[in-house]
Design a protein around this nucleic acid. Structure first.
Length: 496
DNA sequence: ATAGGGTTAG
């Protein structure tokens, strides 16, 4: 807590420190005038995470003169993304207690997203109504968020229902929002449902090329390339003209379905027809050929694009580096990585993650760690995916302590573990058959549930069985008493 | 945040 405070004051050392009121127990952040830098959001997020007393947290966030802005609030909510309950606690704390600050529509959207992800639909609708009473009209984005969460929770009909009732919430449906709901369904692989819905309403919304592209892409995602073709045929019959995006969708569809020669022929056709193929087209082909092990051809296409004057993007490099890692050698992948640097490209977290995964796969954990450090030096620090890769491979190699060490590191910093992290760690706690590992698994299970993540039933049963068999259940129950209450409450819901 | 290209293990 005090190290946090010193970080806060070092951020704004020129501003005087406001002394806490005599009765407060929690240190108060110093006076801030422009506290909306990413660092400030991270510091405040950590303050919220580490606080155990809601009242003193309220004091800290309200008594100080933090200059609350929508951007700062949004950034804090993003930091707390993988700790939904804390994120909502913070949002409500400002909503109900701050004398002057009012949340923006964007912050409301974040809060609604988090509440919906926790499947707390009552809270979602309360927030929706609160938005309206504050005269912040819910936007089409708000409904897209709710629909997406409904679909993810296996309730696509609820998603359609909320879309159709948008106007009752003061937001009218148009072609944009129609396309959005179609995309939400398709991305969640509910293409059949999207297609039926589309056929009923395409006349009313005057479906355009984008609508058809969305549906075609959906069919491609579930590897039904023929269905995509049929859909596009229908589109042309309706007098709509395909765009380059349409062709790129189909091209990707062939490769994804493993129809590599169809994809290749289609690519040649695109070139012959003189439709201006772009960087996306080339990236699709490089990746598509590469994953099928056609490294030479992939490399050739990459060279060809440069000759044709189409500039590769970071995504193109990422595709090439990935397929080299998988089907060629990490060393060749790394030389492409270095080549990309020398040409002035700035690698992103995907680039690093691809390289790191390649190294891990070749059991070169130390080198992988070095690339993790390089990420820190660049602007993009290691993200959840980076940690998950490293932890997974450490555990896989039997280096459980190192995996746990990395977990502790992320848990105390500003990169919170997600559902994958917990699943990876918990399942590794059963390999050594040590009773202490089972205890750790139990703690992880409590922690994940406390943060709003739902364990799979199998995970839950394995952990409980393990604890009961080794007699560790009692000692687990002494692990902090507050989370356990929350834990049992949630478990009742979980077990119905 | 209206459509297309890079991260995911088994």
């Amino acid at each position: 807590m005090f190290s946090l405070l010193s970080k806060l004051s070092s951020l704004h050392s020129k501003t005087p420190l406001h002394l806490p009121k005599p009765f407060t127990t929690t240190p108060i952040p110093p006076s801030q005038t422009t506290m909306n830098t990413p660092a400030a959001a991270s510091t405040l997020a950590n303050l919220i995470l580490t606080s155990t007393n809601p009242q003193s947290l309220t004091q800290s966030l309200l008594c100080s003169s933090i200059n609350w802005t929508p951007l700062l609030v949004d950034n804090i909510l993003k930091h707390l993304w993988n700790h939904g309950p804390k994120a909502l606690q913070f949002f409500h704390l400002l909503l109900h207690n701050h004398p002057t600050y009012t949340h923006s529509a964007s912050s409301f959207n974040h809060a609604i997203d988090i509440a919906a992800r926790l499947r707390n639909y009552a809270a979602v609708f309360t927030l929706l109504h609160r938005m309206r009473s504050l005269r912040l009209q819910p936007t089409p984005k708000t409904f897209a968020i709710i629909a997406e969460r409904y679909v993810a929770a296996g309730k696509p009909d609820k998603a359609l229902k909320i879309f159709l009732s948008m106007h009752e919430h003061g937001c009218f449906q148009d072609l944009h929002s129609f396309n959005t709901i179609l995309d939400v369904l398709c991305k969640a692989r509910r293409v059949e449902k999207a297609w039926k819905f589309f056929k009923v309403l395409r006349g009313r919304f005057k479906a355009d090329v984008i609508s058809y592209n969305i549906i075609a892409n959906g069919w491609c995602l579930i590897k039904k390339t023929n269905k995509a073709l049929e859909t596009l045929k229908e589109m042309v019959e309706k007098g709509l003209t395909p765009t380059l995006t349409t062709y790129n969708i189909l091209l990707k569809g062939y490769f994804r379905a493993g129809q590599i020669e169809n994809g290749w022929k289609f690519f040649l056709e695109m070139k012959k027809r003189k439709c201006e193929i772009d960087v996306v087209t080339y990236t699709t082909v490089v990746h598509g050929l590469g994953v099928m092990g056609e490294i030479k051809r992939a490399q050739k296409v990459f060279d060809e694009m440069v000759e044709e004057g189409v500039l590769p993007s970071v995504a193109t490099y990422n595709a090439l580096i990935q397929v080299l890692c998988k089907k060629d050698s990490v060393e060749n992948a790394i030389s492409v990585f270095e080549e990309m640097l020398s040409k002035g490209y700035v690698p992103n977290s995907t680039t690093y993650n691809v390289v790191i995964r390649g190294l891990c796969h070749k059991e070169q954990m130390e080198r992988a760690m070095e690339y993790m450090d390089r990420m820190r030096d660049d602007e993009c620090g290691p993200n959840v995916q980076t940690y998950n890769i490293m932890i997974r491979y450490f555990l896989y190699a039997g280096e459980i302590e190192k995996g746990l060490e990395l977990f502790e590191k992320m848990n105390s910093g500003d990169c919170l573990p997600n559902l994958d992290t917990y699943n990876i760690l918990i399942s590794a706690m059963f390999v050594r058959k040590k009773s202490n590992d089972l205890l750790v698994a139990g703690k992880l299970l409590i922690e994940m549930v406390d943060r709003g993540f739902m364990p799979r039933r199998l995970t839950f049963n394995r952990v409980l069985d393990g604890l009961l068999l080794t007699g560790s259940f009692a000692s687990l129950m002494q692990f902090k008493d507050k989370p356990i209450l929350n834990f049992s409450w949630r478990m009742i819901i979980f077990l119905n």
